[in-house]
Each structure stands twice: as C-alpha cells, then as structure tokens.
Amino acid sequence: MLMRLASIFLALLSASFTAHGQSAYFPEKHEWQSKQAEQLGFNKSALNDAVSFAQSNEYSGSRDLRIAIFDGFKREPFHEILGPTKKRGGPAGMILKDGYIAAQWGDLERVDMTFSVTKSFLSTLAGLAQDQGLIYSVNDKVANYVWDDTFRGEHNQKITWHSLLNQSSDWSGELFGIKDWADRPPQEGGIDDWKYRVLNAPDTVMEYNDVRVNVLAYSLLQVFRQPLPQVLKTQIMDKIGASSTWRWFGYEDAWVTIDGLKMKSVTGGGHSGGGVFINTLDQARFGLLVLNNGRWKNEQIISKQWLDSAIEPSKANASYGYMWWLNKGPRKWDEVEDSDMFYAAGFGGNFIVVDRKNNMVIVT
C-alpha cells in the first residue's frame, strides 16, 4: 500500500513539472535556498496538490514505533527489539529541483528512524571501500577479507560482495542472536522447513533479509577497521554540510573487537531496532550528493562509477541494485514512466527518490 501511495505522489509531482534545468547549487551548512515553484518549472497548483497528498496520506501504523514494529513483523519467530527505537513525528518532506527547495512540509529538523533507507547509506560505504582500494572488486569472495567463521562452510565461502549488496547471497547462519531464516520467513512452512531449506546459489535469488545486510555491515567494519558511523560522518556527511544530529545504531550486544578496540557493528535496517536516525534535511543532502553523481561542489566524494554500478539491475531482481530500488522490473511504479528513477525505501513510508532526468530529489 505504501508503494502504491508513493507512486501516486510521484505521478502527481511529475504532472506538475514542465521544464528542465542545470544543477550548480549546493547548500551551505545550516542554510538552504528556496525558489518559487514557477522559477523551477513547476505548475504551482499541481505541485501544491502533490504536497497536500503527501501530508494527508500519513503511514497508518502507530507513531510508537515499537508497537508498529511488533505489528509489522509479528510473523517472525523469536522476534525481539534489540536496538534503539524512537517514536516518530508526523509527515515531513522536501522536493528539490536543481538543488533548490521547491516545496517542503512538516518538521524538517526532527530526527526519526528511517529503517531500510539505511541500506542505501551502507551501500555507499561499500563504494567508498572500493574507491579506496580496501575492496579490490565486488566480485571477490568476502571470505578473503573476513577470515573468522562468518563465511565458514561450503555455501557461505562462495559469497561475494556483489551478492551481499544485491541481497542474493542466501548467507546462512546467526549474527548477534538472530538467525537468517527467522528474518522475514516465507509464507509457507514452519521452523524446520526454514532452518533446513536448500540454499540458493549466490546471485540467483534475491531475498530481502536484514540479518544478511547486517553481515555486510559487519564485513565492512572489518575492512575499514573503524566504526561505520565514523566513516560516514568524516568521509561523507561532514563534507556535504549535514547536521550533527543524525545517529547510526546497532544492536545492544553487537560489539566487535578490532585492533584491541571495541566497536559497535551497526544495522542496515530497523525492524529489530537500530539503523540510521536522521532528519529530512540531512537525507536531502545525501540525495543531492547521489543526484550529482557523487560530487559535492568541487569534490568527488564517491565515484560516479560506483553509483552507476549501484543502480544496475541485478540478475536476481531487475527492480534492485546495490541496496537501491529501481523503477523497473517487477516492482516498477505503474503511474511513473521514468524507468531511470531510483530510490531508498524504508518501513513506515520513508523514501529518498533520485530523479536524474528532471534533476530532482524527493524526500518523504
């Protein structure tokens, strides 16, 4: 239902847009310029309709996200909340055109959970690792970089960074107290069926699974040898002028010792708690960085080559790249024609939509 609402919102927004432009504007820290809708090529009345739609179609789940989480994932056996949560605010969002604010609504500075939007931040850190030579190739086996028991066994030792990034690894095991088969189990069968299933060869079947995403985060921690929130802060968020209010959490017991120092391994989502907690403005800055092919002002922060590879349809699911959803394949939005559009998406109606054709970023 949320995906359907998102597609209607984007269809309304597309109908309001009539012109193209060039992006040369990057907002300074603590400030962001706006322009009138007509200056940016929008039909003001139609743009207002799109914003009104976003405001009046709030996620229907409880604002107490502990309740929403338990209700949304009640089919999962042994499900617990293992990391921080936060009660959410009301609808909030921004529409950027050529870097300028065309429209906004709600409390843009309120920090909220974003759930699986976190995955797109995690994917970007994998790109940094490759850009810096910490990962030679995404086609390398992760076991060559992480030599503990995480990738032990005939199946797990075949897994590459590529298959972890597009969620087709079918990694099997337990990480920080959660078993892979207990995360979003199939509609059919029971515990024995899920536990003793036949594993799919990597790169053949895409399965949305936070335990395996957390394995990616754990593996990147081993590669960077410093906490991922610290990497994200110093190498990305500080450079794009983000605030100091965002946080990235892991589970309470997800401590790892590296080089004699205890570090927290963060999560790639929030349905057991944790993940990225962030405000709308900081998400929009991240989206603007991606819109501009990894460049902020005169600095190439993340390579264009990585971002291009991140939005390539995967063999296992043409609607999914490296933890970015694509507007193509089986999950293409019926109302939105642009198949080059891509987006981060999280439980509860969290989206960062990147529209390179029209030089736009939409955050809800």
Score class of each variant (00 low, 15 high):
residue 1 M to G: 08
residue 1 M to Q: 00
residue 2 L to C: 02
residue 7 S to H: 04
residue 9 F to D: 01
residue 12 L to H: 06
residue 17 F to R: 08
residue 17 F to L: 14
residue 22 Q to V: 15
residue 30 H to S: 15
residue 37 A to C: 08
residue 44 K to P: 06
residue 45 S to H: 09
residue 46 A to K: 14
residue 53 F to T: 02
residue 54 A to G: 09
residue 61 G to Q: 09
residue 66 R to L: 12
residue 70 F to W: 01
residue 71 D to S: 14
residue 80 E to T: 10
residue 81 I to V: 01
residue 89 G to F: 08
residue 90 G to I: 02
residue 91 P to W: 00
residue 93 G to V: 06
residue 95 I to D: 01
residue 99 G to I: 14
residue 103 A to V: 12
residue 113 M to Y: 07
residue 113 M to E: 15
residue 116 S to F: 05
residue 120 S to C: 00
residue 124 T to H: 07
residue 125 L to F: 09
residue 135 I to H: 04
residue 139 N to A: 09
residue 143 A to Q: 07
residue 145 Y to W: 07
residue 152 R to F: 15
residue 155 H to Q: 12
residue 156 N to H: 11
residue 157 Q to W: 04
residue 158 K to C: 04
residue 159 I to P: 01
residue 161 W to Q: 05
residue 162 H to I: 02
residue 167 Q to W: 10
residue 170 D to Y: 12
residue 172 S to V: 05
residue 174 E to R: 07
residue 178 I to V: 15
residue 179 K to Q: 12
residue 179 K to N: 13
residue 180 D to R: 09
residue 181 W to Y: 15
residue 184 R to Y: 12
residue 185 P to D: 11
residue 188 E to N: 07
residue 189 G to I: 09
residue 194 W to D: 07
residue 198 V to H: 05
residue 207 E to Y: 10
residue 211 V to C: 03
residue 211 V to M: 08
residue 226 Q to S: 12
residue 230 Q to S: 06
residue 234 T to G: 00
residue 236 I to L: 15
residue 243 S to H: 02
residue 244 S to E: 15
residue 245 T to G: 05
residue 246 W to Q: 02
residue 246 W to G: 03
residue 248 W to S: 06
residue 251 Y to I: 00
residue 251 Y to L: 14
residue 253 D to L: 08
residue 257 T to K: 15
residue 262 K to E: 11
residue 264 K to S: 10
residue 264 K to C: 14
residue 264 K to E: 15
residue 265 S to D: 05
residue 274 G to T: 05
residue 289 L to I: 03
residue 293 N to G: 01
residue 298 N to M: 11
residue 304 K to R: 14
residue 305 Q to D: 08
residue 306 W to R: 03
residue 306 W to G: 05
residue 313 P to E: 10
residue 313 P to S: 12
residue 318 A to Q: 07
residue 322 Y to K: 03
residue 323 M to K: 06
residue 328 K to C: 07
residue 328 K to D: 03
residue 332 K to W: 02
residue 334 D to C: 01
residue 335 E to Y: 14
residue 336 V to S: 04
residue 336 V to A: 07
residue 340 D to E: 13
residue 340 D to R: 06
residue 343 Y to G: 00
residue 344 A to W: 05
residue 346 G to T: 06
residue 351 F to Y: 15
residue 353 V to R: 01
residue 361 V to S: 00
residue 364 T to K: 13
